[in-house]
Design a protein around this nucleic acid. Structure first.
Lengths: 214, 214, 214, 214
DNA sequence: TATGAATGAGTGTTCATTCAT
DNA sequence: AATGAATGAACACTCATTCAT
């Protein structure tokens, strides 16, 4: 009845699905798929349990939305970084590592990753989304960049895909460590530092004999 | 009428717990803790649901038994390898990596690890067992060996714990990859090869003998 | 097609708890706590098993609600009767006995009492509620009235608490008789008549006015 | 192989059923029928769970045996006391009350009674046994004695059965009190004293005007 | 659009009873 | 006669999903 003015308490509707997905992200990341209760998600989103079903047909569909929504903002970033890099290989690696370290520290991607790992067997579709849209392309792009650097003589011989995995795995394992063992009192890793030390050390072995310390 | 065949009651007190743990290992690794149904475990072990409770008081206790049974045979192996190594650091690393690669290829440790990662938040006791009995000691032993090598001037400066994580993470991530993405069609990694290439490459950067930045 | 009939969902939040407690009262009184099946209670209340848990967190909590609901309306009555009585002791006793006889004949208090007796060992909380809220205060109030009458010289010497128990026990035992033995064919007692005869007889011995032992 | 001598550890077999019934009595009295676990009974009797079934076909049959065994030794005592009493009514009542007070203090009859009350609805056969073999005859005998005393002019007019119940109910209620409320901290009654005060008081009202203080 | 009362299938756990030994 | 491993039916409780409002 008051169509004008600031609809202060009515910026609903359009934002609802996002609010729900955001709430679901928190709960799924914390509990995993099976142990997450729709009631908790609804409560955290400030809606009723029934309202969830206005936007998502099933729990699994909501889970999909969470995975896709948590991926989308981040994936293009890394891919673009790799694809568009002009300079020497070492700089590319350093840039990607730094960006990824920042990402895992500032976004809930770690929680989602843990959740995907834990539920992959029961919900293969999730593993497929995660693989096809995120880790597959990213690993492929990185391997491509490595192959190109090898072709240019910048990087020594060796399986590019294995090199790519070598480069990023401490960071990912650090995230898993944080999600899995830090809550029970294990000493955390400082992820940016871990990534930097790892990349610098590994580059020593990867780069061809032209001075890697440039 | 034949005296053999399927007797209803088998009376095999001695073998039963192992059979049950083995079955539970399969089901837990496949489904995770929450989604695993005791009924499935019982069926796979060839016993009734009730029989499970003759040996394990709760589902969680069974889970513990699985974790400890899958850990126990493997942990001392690696720790002993590290502790008892006399020779140069590079040889130690190569030996450990080779042994671990073999282990993850021949034992279900990967499935258990995935399960621990997925359920850690909901069952902290599991994460604690896994950390305190396996990854904690292993990481500590490795970091200790690295620090010793640094003291001997064999290895360059740098956080030993981060180096240790760097050394083993591609292997562990390869296992996670196998458990998570290979079932949906992703290309697997050849873990021994992956480990070897990684170790050789990383060692180049870790070892101090010849300064590559001359 | 008719708009009336049995709608699957009734949406009667307000009435439901009372309906459930009423149904639970019947089933608990008939079977005792352990043998009562939640499914029977739900069926009798015309709801699903799950609906019970919308109102009561556990079977025991439902049991508590039943006890308190069956107690609450009756307890103040008797206590008020005792506390507010002005006249001579004999009239008080007669009034209380009459009121209690009417109560046990018109309310399910007998069934609940039997249930409390039967389950007290396994569910001490129930015995505590019943004792603290009903029999304790009632016995105490009665003993207090007796002690006062003794102080006034109306009642002979003797333990007031034992006198109080003496006064009411035939009525209570009559209820237990009804709940326990009448269903298998035993001859019932007419409780008001039983109470009256007992009170009149016992009063002869309690009252001090005329020494019967001249 | 050693048929002679003291078979010190072999006075089995004949005593087994009694030992089992004795153990069952304890457990049933403590927990009630439904909550009593055959395993506990077996353990307390020092036999295996399976051995129970060599002597009793079902849990209910064992329950029956317990009731009958706990009754048998006590019933004839009271009945004989009443039947064979020659002297004045007051002495009979005093003797019976004293004997019963001793009985409830020294035997587990209280626990069994509580159990019968609690389980009567679910196992009417138990109530029947208890009624037909114990309380029915006892109440009848007492009522008969009262009627005879009335015929002799010793006792005033009134329903003999109601008088009988009046006489014994405080004692029985005291037992129920002990079983139900004392475990949660209620103050117990001293049963012999309670019975004595009650009987003396009630007799004042029951006895005809000839001096009751003789 | 939104609610939340209600459902009902599903699961961990218990325990009386059976039976090979 | 005795054991105790094994069974299987039963039950309390949970929670994703539905639907009258």
């Amino acid at each position: 009845m008051l169509p004008t003015g600031e609809p202060k308490f009515r910026r609903r509707k359009a934002e609802r699905p996002d609010e729900i997905v955001e709430a679901a992200l928190q709960v799924f990341a914390a509990k995993g798929f099976a142990a997450a209760r729709l009631e908790d998600i609804a409560a955290r989103a400030g809606v009723s349990k029934g309202a969830l079903y206005l936007y998502f047909a099933t729990k699994e569909e909501l889970f999909h939305a969470v995975v896709e929504q948590a991926i989308a903002p981040n994936i293009q970033l890394v891919l673009g970084l790799i694809a568009g890099h002009p300079g020497p290989f070492a700089d590319l690696v350093r840039g990607v590592a730094e960006r990824m370290a920042a990402m895992v520290e500032t976004t809930p991607v770690g929680g989602v990753a843990k959740m995907v790992i834990g539920e992959a067997q029961n919900f293969p579709a999730l593993a497929r989304v995660w693989h096809d849209e995120l880790v597959g392309p990213a690993l492929g792009a990185m391997a491509g960049a490595i192959a190109a650097a090898q072709a240019r003589g910048e990087v020594r011989a060796g399986d590019p895909r294995a090199y790519a995995l070598s480069l990023i795995s401490p960071l990912l394992l650090g995230v898993i460590w944080r999600e899995t063992f830090v809550p029970i009192g294990a000493e955390p890793f400082h992820l940016p530092r871990l990534a930097r030390q790892h990349v610098e050390t590994l580059l020593q072995g990867m780069l061809a004999d032209k001075d890697p310390c440039a």
